[in-house]
Every structure is written in C-alpha cells, then in structure tokens.
C-alpha cells in the first residue's frame, strides 16, 4: 500500500447533526493527486455519502472551491503533496460566507442574485441586423477587459473578502469585476444601467481595498483593481453630476 495522508473534513448532515462536525479519512498519498482526487477517493471507496461540488477538474468550471487548511482554493488545482509538508493532516471546509447546505456544499443563491443585478451580458441600445456582420474588435479593445472575462464564478474571492463577511449586502468582488468586464467592452452600452447598482454603498463603496480577493483569485482576475478603477469612474461621474447638474449624467 502506498503512503497515506489524513483528510479532516467538515461534515454537516442536517438529518443527523445540528452543528457541523469533523471526520477524518485516510487516503493514499500520490504526488500527482489534487485535493479533489482525495475527495473522490473517499466518495468512491470510503463513504459515498460525502457531498461536494465539482465538474471539470481542470480549473474552468469554478465549482470545486473550498477552504483547504483555511485558504480558499480550487480543490482541483491544489496538490495534496504540497500541503503541510506533504504529510497532512489536511483540513477541508466549505467556503466561508455561504450558508452550508450539506457537508462541503454551500448555498450560492446570494451570489447568483447579485450577479444578475449587474446584467452580465452585452447591452446594446440597438442591435445591428445579422446581415451587417459581427462586431469587430481590435486587440487593444479586447485587452481593455480580457482579464476580467477570465472570471469563472468560483466565489473564492467572496470567501476571502472580510467586508463580505461583515456586510452581507456588499455586492462583492467577482460581480464588480464582471460588471467591469462589460463596462469596458467597447461593444457594450450598458454602463449607465450597471452604474445605478455599482455606485451605491453596497456596491463599490463598501470595499476598503483589503485586496484578498485578488490574492486568492485562481484566474488572476484582480477584482480589487477592478473595484478601484470603478471608484475613479464613479467619482468622476459624481463630480460631473454635482458640478454640471444640467448636463446628462
């Protein structure tokens, strides 16, 4: 038998226990195994009742985010052998900030509701007919927003954000980065509609630039930078609306 490593997993089975409890499992230790491989080993061989989300196992779907040794990470992109000197134990918990439904599965409804509020799609006042062809972009125009388009909605940034923990109304890092993904897209004409949501206190202004969102982002989106950039935009708009109240906002 190969070497083994201990995974301490937070379990919550509402029909069995009122509070989450810890359960330890021994899984084989392979250099090439990710944390998710360890969880799948448990599910397949030790306890089929263990609940967690995953799909693509290659850092694209954004569903396997968990707290591993206290850090929000994608479990499909975190080597077991790199945690705690490779000897474990490795502690696995659901992402903080989301009410736990079962074991490692959180309720992400709050994030989805907030995401819809900023209308994360290209808004046009008038769509040009198909016969006129596609909307062409230069590489420079693409570069304006490409970074923000890499977001996979994994919600690690929400788990890392101390403001989201304190102020549940805060619309949060990924949603603001995604709003900027469309605001900065030259094909989009919806920045004013999004501005009404973003410019409130629970929008960008709750952020105090802690920067943890960008530190944990597995796709290097830099939501903290997106928020600071939008603060500059919103401040310019605010001064315009105060100093030139007769002009169009």
């Amino acid at each position: 038998m190969a070497e083994s490593i201990t995974l301490q997993i937070q379990r919550y089975r509402p029909e069995e226990e009122e509070e989450p409890v810890w359960q330890s499992f021994e899984v084989p230790r392979h250099d090439e195994w990710m944390v998710l491989d360890g969880l799948n080993y448990i599910k397949d061989n030790l306890d089929g009742s263990l609940s967690y989300r995953w799909a693509c196992r290659m850092g694209v779907c954004g569903s396997c985010g968990m707290l591993v040794n206290g850090e929000p990470v994608l479990t499909c992109a975190t080597y077991l052998s790199e945690l705690g000197g490779g000897r474990g134990p490795v502690r696995i918990e659901p992402l903080t900030g989301f009410p736990v439904i079962r074991d490692l599965v959180g309720d992400i409804g709050d994030f989805i509701t907030k995401l819809q509020r900023i209308k994360p799609w290209i808004i046009r006042q008038e769509d040009k007919p198909l016969s006129q062809g596609e909307y062409l972009q230069t590489p420079e125009e693409l570069a304006l927003y490409q970074q923000y388009s890499m977001c996979i909605n994994c919600m690690l940034c929400y788990s890392a954000c101390p403001i989201y923990a304190l102020e549940p109304d805060f619309i949060g890092p990924a949603v603001i980065a995604l709003a900027q993904r469309y605001n900065l897209d030259p094909r989009d004409e919806g920045s004013e509609e999004r501005g009404d949501v973003l410019s409130q206190h629970a929008g960008i202004w709750a952020c105090t630039f802690v920067g943890e969102c960008s530190a944990v982002c597995p796709k290097h989106v830099d939501p903290a930078g997106a928020i600071q950039r939008y603060k500059v935009t919103a401040t310019a708009e605010w001064f315009k609306s105060v100093l030139l109240p007769w002009g169009k906002r």
Partner: peptide, 17 residues
C-alpha cells in the same frame, strides 16, 4: 425611480487625493 446615489465619492476623492 433611481436608487439614491452614495455621497461616498466626495469623501473617497479627498481620501485618495
């Protein structure tokens, strides 16, 4: 109706300046 806009931009401008 438009939601109320925050007065935060003024103070943030002073802060960042």
């Amino acid at each position: 109706m438009r939601p109320k806009r925050s007065r935060e931009p003024f103070f943030w401008a002073m802060f960042s300046g």
